[in-house]
């Protein structure tokens, strides 16, 4: 198993055949698709397609369990926003009025559109996080010649996040060893105690700044001056080859994006008027 940003992928996954740049490109471009698509069924299809890619990549789909509550709570908030907090609109078609709150068809429709926009965006993010390692992101960034300092800050930020989590665990264990048990305590109590974690966490991170800086300088890294201008060999890139398949995938993603834009703004596709789901829902409600 290979550890990724959000779990593990088996050694035999076909995802390893893909150049890391393609994965980043997929995240950046496919995340944009739903912004230009209004018809929920198309966004739902993008989400299914992304989940199918996860399955094909042999990602443990149990990972989705982390996001299911978030997706549900987001759906609930959107629905709440568009119904209970949706205001009074006599021009809309009233469906029902429970407890005096008017529920309009147009509001339900808009909530559905928004929710189905969000779902594929989350799916692409989860796909990326569950199939990519920190190293993949670095390779992708270096492949497109993003300056080393930016790549490095990114890599180090991920590393330091891991360290903060470790530190958090250590500090928590130390607190528990001194009798702190948050189970069954009030939220105010937990917040008050959470402060106890923050101060040592900050202090440890600040101390690490000095240690890391010394380590970097000892390894000859320079941010300014002549030494900062050396041509880096990017040895890590020797392990990755941008193959024809990668070119084809980038091409497909790009052409699909252009096609969506042309179909949306040139021919009026993906709108609400043509959406069979909306038409069906309207007649059903």
């Amino acid at each position: 198993m290979h550890k990724t940003l959000l779990g593990y992928v088996p050694d035999q996954s076909p995802i390893y055949a893909i150049h890391p740049f393609v994965k980043v490109y997929f995240l950046l471009i496919v995340s944009l698709f739903p912004l230009f698509i209004t018809a929920p069924e198309w966004n739902f299809f993008i989400m299914l397609f992304t989940l199918a890619l996860m399955w094909y990549s042999r990602v443990d789909v149990k990972i989705l369990r982390i996001y299911a509550p978030m997706a549900i709570s987001m759906g609930f908030i959107i629905l709440l926003s568009y119904t209970v907090l949706g205001g009074v609109h006599p021009e809309y078609r009233l469906l029902t009025k429970p407890l005096g709150i008017p529920i309009y068809w147009e509001r339900i429709r808009d909530a559905t559109v928004v929710y189905f926009r969000i779902l594929p965006m989350i799916a692409t993010m989860v796909f990326f996080l569950s199939t990519s390692r920190e190293r993949d992101v670095i390779v992708a960034m270096r492949s497109v010649k993003i300056p080393f300092v930016i790549t490095y800050v990114f890599a180090m930020a991920l590393r330091s996040a891991g360290m903060v989590l470790e530190d958090f665990g250590i500090v928590r264990q130390a607190e528990q060893a001194r009798g702190f048990d948050p189970a069954g305590k009030s939220l105010a109590y937990k917040i008050r105690k959470y402060i106890m974690y923050m101060v040592p966490l900050f202090a440890l991170s600040l101390r690490r700044t000095e240690e890391f800086t010394n380590a970097l300088i000892a390894r000859g890294y320079a941010f300014t001056g002549k030494a900062s201008k050396v041509k880096r060999a990017d040895y890590v890139l020797t392990h990755y080859t941008f193959r024809a398949l990668d070119g084809v995938l980038v091409g497909i993603i790009t052409i699909t994006f252009i096609a969506i834009l042309v179909l949306r703004y040139g021919f009026g596709y993906f709108g609400l008027d043509d959406s069979w789901f909306i038409i069906w829902a309207q007649s059903a409600l």
Binding site: M156, A157, R159, V164, F202
Partner: peptide, 17 residues
């Protein structure tokens, strides 16, 4: 200097968590 670059990364890391 390098310390500021490291600091930026660590702040992003701690902020992330």
């Amino acid at each position: 200097g390098v310390i500021h670059i490291v600091l930026l990364a660590l702040l992003i890391g701690i902020g992330f968590v």
